[in-house]
């Protein structure tokens, strides 16, 4: 379990994180979502005790990171893909790490095997591709078999194969009962990996919820209905308490009634239904809606294009 209590961090005049509180429970993958520059990496560095918060605290199992008795046996963190010396071999990097926490050296070969780096274990890590570097970073997080794992953008720079591997891997860790906290600015990635979401923008909490709830909260359950009996249907729906919007002359958009309720209504009233579609808002849309105005760096030209697009 990771808990953030009112974390605040400034870098000079920049407020990187402001009064941020959330919980990361064990047994599920919790996605940490936010636009570029929203403070995800900063928050993770504070959880790992690398940066000190100006106020507030980040706790792991109720204790600050620097008070952990065997840090690598309790927390595995991959904060950046190249946190190793390029001239050291992958095996030697893991060897010194293992020694710090009295971890048996056989774990080094075990985790190298687990991430598929056994065959390059004696190569200098500086020669690794980005994907291999990420795997070495992941191997390092697993050394102490920790119950809490943090990954900052673990799929950055990975090919689709690598992305699938990481996704599967993270879900596996959570299924074993571990606490898994993964940041990303790619909502599509999170929708396939995470169960829960902590969403931030400009260093502030926007939402802390399940993926399903996050979507439905923004979707408000709109249903599209295609029917030849437009006028009669609209009247019946309004009578049943729904809000009806005009479609393209052959359809209606209905809010306030679910698709089964509309179907039942049609049967009672003897109205014809040609198509009935619940409109699910994508996670992407929900995210965009929620982070409107929370984006730190919006290129002006793109903002202009987006505004023009909305007008259509």
């Amino acid at each position: 379990m990771i808990t953030a209590h009112s974390l605040t961090k400034h870098y000079g005049a920049t407020t990187a994180v402001h009064n941020l509180s959330f919980e990361v429970p064990p047994g599920v993958v919790t996605g940490f979502l936010g636009p570029n520059g929203s403070g995800k990496s900063t928050t993770m560095r504070m959880i790992m005790g690398l940066d000190a918060p100006d106020s507030g605290a980040a706790l792991i199992g109720g204790r600050p990171y620097c008070e952990l008795v065997w840090p690598l046996r309790e927390v595995g963190g991959l904060l950046d893909a190249k946190a190793f010396h390029p001239a050291r071999t992958a095996r030697n990097h893991l060897r010194w790490l293992a020694l710090t926490n009295d971890i048996p050296l056989r774990r080094v070969d075990e985790v190298l095997d687990q991430v598929g780096l056994s065959s390059v274990a004696n190569r200098r890590a500086g020669k690794f591709s980005l994907g291999m570097s990420q795997r070495l970073g992941i191997a390092a997080t697993l050394l102490g078999d920790p119950g809490v794992l943090l990954f900052d953008e673990p799929v950055n720079g990975l090919d689709p194969e690598g992305i699938r591997w990481v996704r599967h891997f993270l879900r596996g860790l959570a299924a074993e009962g571990r606490t898994v906290f993964v940041s990303s600015h790619l909502i599509s990635e999170m929708s396939q990996t995470a169960d829960r979401l902590v969403v931030i923008g400009r260093g502030r909490l926007i939402a802390e919820t399940t993926v399903a709830d996050f979507v439905s909260r923004s979707g408000r359950g709109t249903v599209r209905l295609i029917t030849p009996d437009l006028a009669a249907f609209a009247e019946a729906l309004t009578g049943a308490g729904a809000t009806v919007g005009d479609g393209d002359g052959a359809s209606l958009t209905v809010e306030g009634l679910s698709a089964p309720q509309i179907g039942d209504l049609a049967a009672r009233e003897g109205l014809r239904v040609h198509e009935l579609m619940p409109i699910t808002v994508s996670l992407e849309d929900a995210f965009m809606e929620l982070t409107q105005g929370e984006v730190e760096y919006r290129p002006t030209t793109m903002a202009g294009a987006a505004a023009a697009g909305e007008g259509e």
Partner: peptide
């Protein structure tokens, strides 16, 4: 689940 899954010394 805050302690290590593997027994620590």
């Amino acid at each position: 689940m805050t302690q290590a899954i593997q027994a620590a010394p």
